[in-house]
Design a protein around this nucleic acid. Structure first.
Length: 731
DNA sequence: ATCACAATACTTTTT
DNA sequence: GTATTGTGAT
């Protein structure tokens, strides 16, 4: 009797694969989390691997926690070869693990272990500063776009000095990038991308450090491998080392939805090339959804041009038909969702907590929230910025970051005049100029003023701003002293009292009360994480996103974006806003790669559903204030009408008919000649045996096919020369 | 010089 | 609904 008895043959093959590079290609709902957790348990139990040697990388911290919990459960199972309870091993996201390594090795690095992590809005503030510094027009060079370019470069491990370009715009980006990076350094700050980049640089340059980590992490597991970017992949390779490391990666190219963040599912191909001896296991059976839902999902993903028809199968039976609903406007859409959930609950067909509502953009949650509130029903929102993006929360965090790392200028500028201290733009600018001229960081000027108002720095400043700056400096000094003495919640209280933050934020209105409640909630987080120091608290705040804190104890419907839904499952799923311009999103419509990603995103949403699926579209939609008509999503039209519940199928067939007359398609109208060998196709080669097509591209009249063979690894073959037989679908 | 309030423009997805 | 910019009052 072994733990592995609970698995199907494919899963068992993956879990008990001999240590070495292994690629697990898993369809949705195929139990890949299960495979990963069993693999860890197998290493710990069966192979008696010391826990310290294992590192598991997950996509979210929530996934990490979930996995830890499950492993603990597995190891407590009497059938586990080594029935002691769970032991600690490294587990977390790339970013969290990288941050830990950087703090540990900070002595070798050009920043101190007190570095702060800048989130997207901090980054944008810094880019904004840089653009202004270079006397560029913010309108012409929107910080967000420049930041995107910088982030893309960082994900490819391209630093400011290596950044090459041939365009004028690229030249601007390069110059902003240089200033931006300099500012990060002088602020003792790292952005998200730096966490990865700096670790990679460290491991590349410091031989002894690299050796140490390689010796330490003998077994590495990666979840959602299709969403790794170049920096992450290089980091993995550095940690794993050469030869045949035990690198166990699990992914599904069809669920790759983070291309815009630099993720490259071709890492799957790279993996096979870099580790020619790697094993490959497929997980094809789906344990989650009914056949109807799977058929709908497959119909959508199979429209992906140049892709093999995939047969996901389940033994769960057909289940109820898919429901398609057309609402009049967003309010109507939201009330339809709320009413349907209420009805299902009332009939006892589902618990409120079984239901999830998914949408493309966070903004779409608003009408839903209003409808839930109107109906007096509770809900849970997994929002990107629901909590940590709020002004009052950011203010308090900025204060704490400043205390933690006074070099953090972004935070300093944020709070210097919040609450108002009569320090306007002019005073701030004079402070910065004075600091620059004296060659010191701005905060030292403040601290100097606090000690001695007549310090030499004072000359350039007006008497009124000196008073304000001095007062702020005194407060800062006292907090810095407190930092050493007081536990975190008490430190927070001190900041709130000295700044009299409450009377600033809480004006007695409902909104003000709400804001103060948020401040207290943040304090509560600090309190809960008992004994946590300031460093860990700030790191938690920076790296732990809302969905990581998603509690499943509440029995209420969940509202979340399709991206946030990745890796989750619900008995009842609503996907709303199935309209052209929303899903697919307007900004993805003129790029066929992006359009393909939108399609995969929809596919991810569909495959979250276990039993029932509701697809909702809206006839009229308000965007940026004006309401206009919109057309049904092209993805919706790909769902075969015979999977849709009677009354509603008409909506589809009518829309499909009108669609025929138009020329919207995923690829240009003329369309390039298509490849004969589509990704995922099973083939047989006379010499190499059976394999799977990883990619194929046209090469003149010929076709170059990249194939992974079960026995031979990756080969690139010319279709005209190699005698490739296409095997029938794996039915 | 600062601040409060009004007008304005913009709004993908997130570790 | 939010962040930035503009305006007039203090």
């Amino acid at each position: 009797m072994s733990l592995l008895d609970d698995l199907n043959p494919q899963q068992r093959q993956a879990v008990s694969a001999p240590p070495g590079p292994t690629l697990v290609l898993a369809g949705p709902g195929s139990g890949k989390t299960r495979v990963l957790t069993f693999r860890v348990a197998y290493l710990l139990g069966e192979l008696a691997v010391p826990p310290g040697e294992i590192m598991a990388v997950t996509f979210t911290n929530k996934a990490a926690r979930e996995m830890a919990k499950r492993i603990e459960g597995l190891l407590a199972d009497p059938r586990a070869a080594n029935g002691s309870s769970a032991r600690p091993f490294s587990l977390g996201t790339f970013h969290a693990l990288a941050a830990r390594m950087l703090r540990r090795e900070a002595d070798l690095l050009p920043f101190t272990r007190d570095f702060v992590i800048y989130d997207a809005s901090d980054q944008e503030a810094l880019v904004r500063q840089a653009v202004k510094d270079l006397n560029l027009d913010l309108k012409q060079y929107p910080p967000g776009r420049i930041l995107g370019a910088i982030s893309t470069a960082k994900n490819e491990l391209i630093g400011p000095s290596e950044y090459t370009t041939t365009t004028y715009y690229g030249e601007i980006v390069k110059r902003v990038y240089e200033v931006y990076q300099k500012r990060l350094n002088s602020n003792n700050a790292l952005d998200f991308d730096d966490l990865l980049m700096k670790v990679v640089a460290l491991l590349r340059e410091a031989d002894d450090v690299r050796r140490r980590y390689r010796d330490r992490y003998r077994h590495i597991l990666v979840d959602e491998f299709q969403d790794t970017n170049t920096a992450q992949y290089v980091l993995l390779r550095l940690l794993a080392g050469d030869g045949d490391p035990d690198l166990f990666v699990v992914g599904d190219a069809d669920q790759s939805i983070y291309r815009w963040r630099g993720a490259d599912y071709r890492n799957v191909i790279r993996f096979q090339e870099d580790y020619p001896g790697s094993g490959m296991v497929l997980l094809e059976q789906n344990y989650r959804s009914t056949q109807t839902i799977l058929d709908a999902a497959m119909a959508v993903i199979d429209r992906h041009p140049g892709r093999q028809i995939k047969r996901l199968f389940t033994d769960r039976g057909r289940g109820p038909q898919v429901v398609v609903h057309e609402a009049y406007d967003e309010q109507d859409e939201a009330s339809y969702v709320v009413e349907t959930i209420a009805m299902l609950t009332m009939r006892g067909e589902a618990d409120p907590g079984d239901c999830a509502v998914m949408y493309r953009t966070n903004a779409q949650s608003r009408s839903l929230e209003e409808a839930f509130l109107r109906a007096g029903l509770a809900y849970r929102l997994v929002g990107a910025q629901r909590f940590y993006g709020r002004r009052e929360v950011k203010d308090l965090i900025a204060y704490l970051r400043l205390i933690h790392n006074p070099l953090d200028q972004v935070s300093l500028l944020r709070v210097l005049n919040v609450p108002p201290r009569a320090l306007g733009a002019k005073s701030v600018q004079t402070l910065l100029d004075t600091a620059e001229r004296a060659g010191v960081a701005p905060h030292t000027i403040l601290l100097d003023l606090a000690r001695d108002a007549t310090s030499p720095h004072a000359s350039a400043l007006g008497s009124r701003s000196i008073r304000g700056l001095k007062a702020f400096g005194e407060s800062l000094q006292s907090w810095l002293d407190d930092r050493e003495r007081l536990p975190l919640p008490a430190l927070i209280d001190r900041v709130l009292t000295t700044t009299d933050y409450r009377s600033y934020i809480d004006d007695g209105t409902d909104e003000g009360t709400d804001r103060w409640a948020n401040v207290m909630e943040l304090r509560g987080v600090a309190q809960e994480m008992d004994g946590l120091d300031l460093t860990s608290f700030l790191e938690h705040v920076a790296l732990v996103s809302d969905q990581d804190t998603l509690t499943d104890s509440l029995n209420v419907p969940t509202l979340l974006t399709l991206h946030a839904a990745k890796g989750l499952e619900f008995p009842v799923v609503f996907i709303i806003g199935l309209d052209e311009g929303v899903l697919p999103h307007q900004r993805a419509m003129d790029d066929s790669e992006e359009l393909a990603e939108e399609r995969r995103l929809f596919y991810v949403g569909l495959t979250r559903a276990k039993d029932r699926l509701f697809l909702v579209r809206t006839f009229r939609r308000r965007a940026a204030g004006i309401s206009s008509m919109c057309e049904p999503s092209r993805f919706l039209l790909d769902i075969p009408a015979d999977l849709v519940e009677g009354d509603h199928a008409g909506i589809l067939t009518a829309a499909q008919a009108s669609f025929q007359r138009q020329t919207r398609w995923d690829s240009p109208a003329s369309g390039p000649p298509t490849t004969r060998f589509r990704v995922g196709l099973h083939i047989r080669h006379p010499k190499f045996g059976e394999g799977i097509v990883m990619s194929s591209r046209l090469d003149g009249d010929d076709e170059e096919v990249t194939i992974t063979f079960a026995s031979e690894g990756v080969k690139r073959l010319a279709a005209s020369i190699a005698r490739l037989d296409i095997l029938e679908d794996e039915e």
